[in-house]
Design a protein around this nucleic acid. Structure first.
Lengths: 202, 202
DNA sequence: GTAACTAATGGAGGCAACCTCCACTTTACC
DNA sequence: GGTAAAGTGGAGGTTGCCTCCATTAGTTAC
């Protein structure tokens, strides 16, 4: 699994001195906690406090709030990518659907984080391109397999699918179980191949 | 067109005295501007300044930032609802698709606003229920027509569709024209009726 | 018209978060 | 162990949030 390597390494600027690296790691950990608990606008001073470092150190490592959000976000994405491995044994379509559902669940719990990022960094920031690449690398094998087996129409790309799922994850759910159902409906569109009959051409 | 009346009127608490109402309107206008220009976290003090009223007046009318966001948001939604009228003459499926595309375009430009709301008010706040109702009232005629004509499968609701579109509008676009294309793909899933052959049952 | 009654105003002030700056501490290297 | 460079942390200036209440100005009743 090489997907993690495809994320443009936010951490390439990781500090060199031992104490500095320790502080960096403590900050990421504290930030993950804080963002999870309080959403993407958790106080930076609070995060520094949790990490047990001065506010100045936080700013030295992450000049803007976005930099910190990014660093945390990237770590999370790497985690999802790692979950493909379990699924390569299952039948193509089922495996793909299962992974997408898993992906959906995962993103759903990270809404605050990713929404904050979507808002403030425009949609085509390097991080996103990188994370997208990583997700593709992870999902592509499943996707290609499903396309090869004829389950998925040929005129869509993995790109389309990932974005579709990402979008669905951000919908405001009203009814219990509605979100996964909507995913299934949308995926039916994906699957639909030259097999439909009895319609006017549109 | 009664849809506007179905929004649980945020403005029923509209102030009574003439000067108060004037200030209220100036605040909404200033807020719309500010939110559009600077996103949902524009400074409230700045908004009061733009409106030419004191910060205290802002807080009297809109005790929380959400209240202000809501009021602006509701106005915008009402505007979309009004656009259905043009389309009732077109063929059912085409009219529905066209309206959904229009709806998509519209929401896309208001991202900052709606995302802010989605984040902070949970997904089932009254406003949303109200706005959803209004949107349904607007889209429902189109939707029912399309279902009656056999273009749309019967096991989906207008609710599902609206949410699908809302979700898609929030996807980070990479390629020009990708978003509308994805909407079309998803809508194919909608359309698919008992007309597919040659598949295993799943 | 004007007096009396409120609704409405606006900004001072207290608090908290953001961020910069730099005197000091710690590490790495010789 | 000495020293240069890297890293630290928190005081303090700035700005935004929100409350409170003395003052202002529509409204109503006469």
């Amino acid at each position: 699994m090489t997907s993690a390597a495809m994320i443009p390494d936010v951490r390439s600027q990781r500090p060199k001195r031992a104490d500095a690296r320790r502080n960096y790691d403590k900050l990421i950990a504290a930030a993950r906690e804080a963002f999870t608990e309080e959403g993407g606008s958790a106080s930076l001073e609070e995060i520094a406090r949790r990490a047990g470092v001065g506010i100045g150190t936080l700013y030295r490592n992450f000049p803007t709030r976005q930099d910190l959000l990014e660093a945390v976000y990237v770590e999370e994405v790497e985690a999802v990518c790692r979950t493909t491995e379990d699924l390569m044994g299952d039948p193509p379509w089922e495996a793909l659907v299962a992974w997408l559902h898993r992906f959906l669940d995962y993103i759903a719990t990270k809404q605050a984080l990713s929404q904050e990022l979507f808002n403030h960094l425009g949609r085509d920031a390097d991080v996103f391109r990188g994370c997208r690449t990583a997700i593709y690398a992870a999902g592509e094998q499943l996707f290609v397999r499903a396309q090869a087996s004829g389950d998925v129409r040929n005129d869509v790309s993995i790109d389309d699918v990932v974005m579709l799922v990402a979008g669905i994850s951000k919908m405001p759910a009203t009814v219990e179980g509605q979100i996964p159902r909507i995913l299934d409906i949308a995926l039916e569109g994906l699957r639909r191949q030259a097999q439909v009959v009895g319609e006017t051409g549109h």
